[in-house]
Amino acid sequence: MSTAMDPHAVTEDVTFDGGTPAEQRAVLAAFRTFWTANNTFDIPLLETIWGSDPDDVYFNSNGHNYHGVEEWKEVWRYYGPRFVTTVEAQLSRVRVLIRDGLAVVSDEGVRREWEAHDVDTNSTTVAATPRVRGTVVLTKTGAGAGSSGAGSEWRVVHAHFSPRRSGPRVATDRQ
């Protein structure tokens, strides 16, 4: 397995719209921490950046909706023993929009590789290489939540993942 993403690194493929440089770094760090946790179904790490409101809604790439961190943790408890990440998430075309304590992060082409583990037969097979696109919404919580004040944290309150299609798009020649 490759090494974990550096949550503080800013890469060339990230575009920011709004926010102070400190907010931009903090939002990108929370987004990357989410992906680091997601790569290994790391529930304690997830809890450091996931919102605590049971009404937060998450759209999983399995096609189902989950509400609150407790349901999301159940999803990870289910998938954790069944999948092992062999190539961690590779992100592309990340866009970050920040406005007044709210951030929206989109990624147009997340790619990673898993090995699937059949818990009934104790066998391992190479799983498909899923390509998804995702949107993660974060809000600023804690002291200084409405400003760039110290003591505030960014928390994921919504995530939406869906399959990414390849080939020409309808009504355009762009891929």
Rank of each mutant, 00 (worst) to 15 (best):
residue 113 E to G: 02
residue 122 N to M: 09
residue 107 D to R: 02
residue 131 R to G: 03
residue 94 V to I: 15
residue 112 R to M: 13
residue 105 V to K: 08
residue 142 G to L: 05
residue 116 A to H: 10
residue 130 P to G: 07
residue 101 G to A: 03
residue 119 V to P: 00
residue 123 S to P: 00
residue 130 P to E: 07
residue 94 V to C: 05
residue 134 G to Y: 07
residue 102 L to T: 11
residue 114 W to F: 15
residue 143 A to I: 02
residue 98 I to H: 04
residue 131 R to Y: 03
residue 99 R to L: 10
residue 145 A to F: 06
residue 91 L to M: 13
residue 97 L to N: 10
residue 141 T to A: 01
residue 131 R to E: 12
residue 147 S to W: 02
residue 124 T to H: 06
residue 137 V to G: 01
residue 141 T to P: 03
residue 124 T to A: 06
residue 98 I to G: 07
residue 108 E to S: 14
residue 89 A to L: 05
residue 136 V to S: 12
residue 138 L to T: 00
residue 104 V to D: 01
residue 120 D to H: 10
residue 145 A to I: 12
residue 123 S to D: 04
residue 131 R to I: 14
residue 126 V to G: 00
residue 100 D to L: 11
residue 119 V to G: 00
residue 99 R to K: 08
residue 132 V to M: 03
residue 127 A to S: 14
residue 128 A to E: 15
residue 96 V to A: 01
residue 141 T to D: 05
residue 126 V to Q: 11
residue 147 S to P: 11
residue 138 L to H: 02
residue 91 L to C: 09
residue 140 K to F: 05
residue 90 Q to V: 14
residue 129 T to E: 13
residue 135 T to G: 04
residue 146 G to W: 09
residue 142 G to A: 04
residue 91 L to H: 12
residue 112 R to E: 04
residue 108 E to G: 10
residue 106 S to H: 08
residue 87 V to A: 07
residue 105 V to I: 11
residue 125 T to G: 10
residue 103 A to K: 03
residue 91 L to P: 02
residue 147 S to T: 15
residue 101 G to I: 11
residue 134 G to E: 11
residue 97 L to F: 05
residue 115 E to W: 07
residue 143 A to G: 09
residue 138 L to F: 15
residue 144 G to E: 10
residue 121 T to R: 13
residue 100 D to M: 06
residue 132 V to K: 01
residue 106 S to K: 04
residue 97 L to P: 00
residue 113 E to I: 00
residue 112 R to I: 01
residue 92 S to H: 06
residue 96 V to K: 02
residue 87 V to I: 09
residue 136 V to Q: 09
residue 93 R to H: 14
residue 109 G to I: 09
residue 110 V to F: 04
residue 136 V to R: 09
residue 105 V to N: 09
residue 100 D to G: 03
residue 89 A to D: 07
residue 102 L to K: 04
residue 93 R to F: 09
residue 143 A to E: 15
residue 97 L to D: 10
residue 137 V to T: 15
residue 98 I to N: 06
residue 134 G to I: 14
residue 127 A to K: 01
residue 98 I to V: 10
residue 118 D to M: 00
residue 107 D to A: 14
residue 129 T to L: 02
residue 122 N to D: 15
residue 89 A to N: 05
residue 132 V to E: 05
residue 131 R to C: 10
residue 118 D to R: 02
residue 110 V to R: 02
residue 100 D to Y: 10
residue 141 T to G: 00
residue 94 V to Q: 12
residue 97 L to S: 06
residue 101 G to D: 03
residue 89 A to G: 08
residue 120 D to V: 13
residue 91 L to Y: 08
residue 130 P to Q: 08
residue 143 A to N: 12
residue 93 R to S: 14
residue 129 T to D: 13
residue 105 V to Q: 00
residue 89 A to T: 05
